[in-house]
Write a protein that binds this DNA or RNA. Sequence first.
DNA 1: CTGAAAGCGCTTACAG
DNA 2: CTGAAAGCGCTTACAG
Lengths: 368, 368
Amino acid sequence: MPARRPSAAARATTARRVTLSDIAAGCGVSRSTVSLVLGRSPLVHAETRAKVQAELDRQGYVYHRGAASLRSRASNAVALVINDLSNPFFAEFAAGVDAALAEAGYVMLLGSSGESPERQQAVLASLVEHDPAAAILSPAEHSDPARLHRLIGARMPVLVFNRALDAAAGDGWDFLGLDNRRGARLATEHLLGQGHRAIAFFGGHRDSSSCGERRAGYRDALAAAGIAPDPAWLVECAPTRLEAARQAGALFARDPAPTAAVCYNDAVALGLMSGLAARGRRAGVDFALTGFDDIPEAAVSAPPLTTIAVAPRERGMQAARLVLERLAERQYDPDRATQAPRTIVADARLVVRASSLAAPHAAQGTAA
Amino acid sequence: MPARRPSAAARATTARRVTLSDIAAGCGVSRSTVSLVLGRSPLVHAETRAKVQAELDRQGYVYHRGAASLRSRASNAVALVINDLSNPFFAEFAAGVDAALAEAGYVMLLGSSGESPERQQAVLASLVEHDPAAAILSPAEHSDPARLHRLIGARMPVLVFNRALDAAAGDGWDFLGLDNRRGARLATEHLLGQGHRAIAFFGGHRDSSSCGERRAGYRDALAAAGIAPDPAWLVECAPTRLEAARQAGALFARDPAPTAAVCYNDAVALGLMSGLAARGRRAGVDFALTGFDDIPEAAVSAPPLTTIAVAPRERGMQAARLVLERLAERQYDPDRATQAPRTIVADARLVVRASSLAAPHAAQGTAA
DNA sequence: CTGAAAGCGCTTACAG
DNA sequence: CTGAAAGCGCTTACAG
């Protein structure tokens, strides 16, 4: 764990800062008393408190939390590491975390890994130096749990979000995941309900955990309907709009072709729509499809996209609260005897829009 | 400036942390030497350095930046306060800030004001206690510049983004804004180029600075084309999709009605599209319109939205770099003699898509 | 090239 | 209810 000092760190050049000593001197009490006033201690006489409070305001005192937490070994910062803020799913998640933390008087240290385990490690190392009380981590794909552990192992409560870390189940970290399996099952059941029998699972990489879970839910629904999925119905592709548009043709390589597809996520579904259009097929008319995530675009695409809503903002608030609970537990139970790691799976909900409403015969008519 | 201690701050309950003294003791040198190694000082003998480095790794040392910056009065954190991470414009901006800061070895403290000046003040106060070296602020509407100033006035370099603060020009804060005026002029010129003469400006509130600037650009273009805008062409509404859909009818209250509209932003434009559809008009066929921002939905709406791209991610990187430059300047020139506040206006670019391609006669045909 | 000492701004027992 | 003193983990002159 090579610690390194910042290549550049700005030195304050403004006037000397106002400290507790200045306030104490300014109103004739000791620093201890000022500190007690700051801490809202009931020990301080009301008059003294008022006098100190006035001096605090007069001199424009700013609490130096770094000094305080150095002494008291308490921190009110929480580190959040996500993949990418440009992804609305993570942006909403971060917004939820921020809201819940702010409400509890905590401050958020934010870093992005850009799906790179290397950057993730560097970003986390940098955040950890700021002594957060806890961390929320949405791990980059192919993260190395052992390295992450070495960095923040038992230092603080950690909540892993969205993607379970390989192995290391007994690592003591909490996990908050989406109900990928149930979500995909709901989407598949919806298409079955429309009368489709030949339903593809389109997009994602088989080895990613979320893709595996979604495929499992898809299989569950087919199995319950007595359908054995044709292996040709499982089409892999990178979870981006562009790749999905390129791979659309793979769905129609065999005859009979599927009449509907459960897509790995909304980006893939939107890409598939373009790919279908390029082949003269119209989503929601000639072909039925569903997404996953309910990103904002889903409601305004043409046609609007049927998808699985996972409420990322609510998940963010939930994540923050879980971590704050852990912090509270530690205060009462410093030895953490009772603290077995928790795994929480958040519910997923089907949102029906026009993209999935094509009837199977219309789809087959076009395919013929 | 009432400082207050956190209602809840987590006390560390883990094993005693590894400090410089542990490393020093562990390899038989003084703490000073370890500190010099951490600081990559060239003074330390290569062998000593290697020995210390090994001990650092062996004990899993984590640098305590709070203690360091307390002593050295240097910070490597930058505070960012934005309105709302759920807004893709701000999320992209924050992503850009984060990327540029991380590259320079800085850490980001993020808070959201939710467009509330009260929350903005509270959030900023909370971040400032963490002693950031600089701040980037995208102010909530109706911010009180004087109160903001009292909080972070001369403590650190401040960059205001997106919305200029009323008055207080001589406050010494830098400003990075979008070229609202030019952007709206480009959009209006584009519609004029399609042959439209009766062009509305739809959405936004007159008293908001960005709306005022965009209206000015709209007027510039009309004036250059020798057109005096009918006051009925200026329709106000809250900058949300829902409000815009509701207000669509206001465009057609008078006869002849406008055949095109420059919308305040993309949200308004997308709302207007729905409002048009509800009235049996088709954007891009019977009516031409443009947006502003180029949010991700703009590319996938039906029809795709012609808009003004402002590249929020690039703006974020630019903002971070400006602030880092200021920090560097202060190191060389502690008295800040040369540091006049800067105002930088970022370029805006027209992105033509289908929504603006309706010809005026088609629009009038429908209107009749 | 390395070490002993002071001090950054706070909190926290401990006296009184 | 208030104050004097120690110490959190680091850096920084200053000696040597």
